[in-house]
Design a binder for these strands. Sequence first.
RNA 1: GGGCCGGUAGCUCAGUUGGCAGAGCAUCGGACUUUUAAUCCGAGUGUCGUGAGUUCGAAUCUCACCCGGCUCACCA
Length: 516
Amino acid sequence: MAQLELAASSKTFRPEGSKLSQQNEQEFIKVRVEKTASLRQKGIDPYPTSYKRTHTSRQAEEVFEVAEKKNEEFTETIKVAGRIMGRRGMGKASFIDLSDTDGRIQVMMRSNVLDEDYEILDDLDIGDWIGAEGTLFRTRTGQITLQVATFSILCKSLRPLPEKWHGLTDVETRFRQRYLDLISNEDAIKTAKDRSLLVSTIRQFMTKKGFIEVETPMLVPIAAGGMAHPFTTHHNALNRDLYLRIATELHLKRLVVGGIEKVFEIGRVFRNEGVDLQHNPEFTTLESYEAFSDYNDVMSMVEQLVSTAAITLNGSETVRYGEEELDFSPPWPRIDLREKIIQVSGIDFFEHPEVDSLKTAMRAADIDVSQQVSWSGLLDKLISDKVEPTLVQPCFLVNYPVAMSPLAKKSPADDRIAERFEGFVCGMEICNAFTELNDPIDQRARFEEQEMLRQEFQNEEMDRLDEDFLVAIEHGMPPTGGLGIGIDRLAMLLTDNSSIREVILFPQLRSDRTEG
RNA sequence: GGGCCGGUAGCUCAGUUGGCAGAGCAUCGGACUUUUAAUCCGAGUGUCGUGAGUUCGAAUCUCACCCGGCUCACCA
């Protein structure tokens, strides 16, 4: 317990008025380090090992209200703990706002109750963590408040928090020092929690359907399973270059070959490409593979999954996103890709099987094709420019050209078309799925085609031939429906965020001067 | 990568025609035993993103660079 004389002597640690003239960030810290020393002088450990609270802020409020409803006086002694977010000193009484995991609670410290311990308040600052024990009452203004009998400091902070009223708005600081964002902005913490809830909802949904969750390598010898520029790395002991995976697809399909008929992975993939509102170099995907299913089965699963997530996060299948009111309730419209392209641009890709012909048609439709060289690159651009912006409400574009779908099975009805679909919401692609190609001869031919195209068009990413994967499916993969969902984008849609950086706790940013 | 906008105190922001660097919160000193953006009295905030240049004089004008935002291109 603190001694008055020690408390008095601690004043000598304080800078006198004249020394305050240099106050800046370092001075803030210096003052707080001195307060830390002052606490130690009083025999108080500013960094104790634990504190056993009995109630969170919300639990305390609830238990008090229950007693009130029964017209009982609340006499129970409880313990709460949290970070000091505000303090209002009244001389011989002080009100302190504590913030904890599920809310805030006000605690009241009175000098006649705490005696000499009241002096310890001199060494507390906004940002410090404390635990407080006492009983609950309502103040004159009706605020449920803990009347503190004893309290402990749990952690002394050395840096000031952002301002209490405006909080932290600087976007760069919000992303670089996310903890400050989480402390200051309720939206930030809500988005973080909602994303977590989304992922656990997806996991439960898949598990309930009998899917087995697995983890596959992130360090891979060939970055296959998608069209993207990979990150390169090197393993010293093995003395080999490796890549960070760009997709989980080919490993998961190996597992289907192995007899895991329903398998999924939620994990990070890495693409060494541009960064913008919808792209972060590392992002999270759900990929799933289900034997004896085709892309139609996968479509119904996606509708169910996303509408379930919408209900879990927002309590409704209808979700507000910016100006839009999105309705995720199944079924989502199935829109034939070829028909849709014809409708919005007049271009029928069946009539333009050659690069030059398609390019000419697109140029005639006033599309900038200066950056594209391959047929699939051109068609992708056509879809991005003309079709995607029209897809606001959740829908599926179905039946893609085989030429741009090297891992998808051809339609039995037309060998130019693959049984593939992509899901779109607000013009944003949220998933890509197909009836998996399990004919190993065809798959090898498609990979070889991709390798050839990469040689021809060095600027465009193509899928890569993965011999090990081909050997796997040569052992026989049953008919399989596969799916990839961008979790980050789904999180954006369900948390009403227009930037992927808002749903990733630590998004990739350029280096700044504070980095080593 | 291109275009546009921005970077001033720990935080939120002003800063006029180029003429001593400002406010609120936070901090520090003092008063105050039911406050809650507490209040009242008093005090100090600083690499004006960085570096050059123009000028008697630059937060302000010019150039280069760094970081961020939006946007276009590319990608998912």
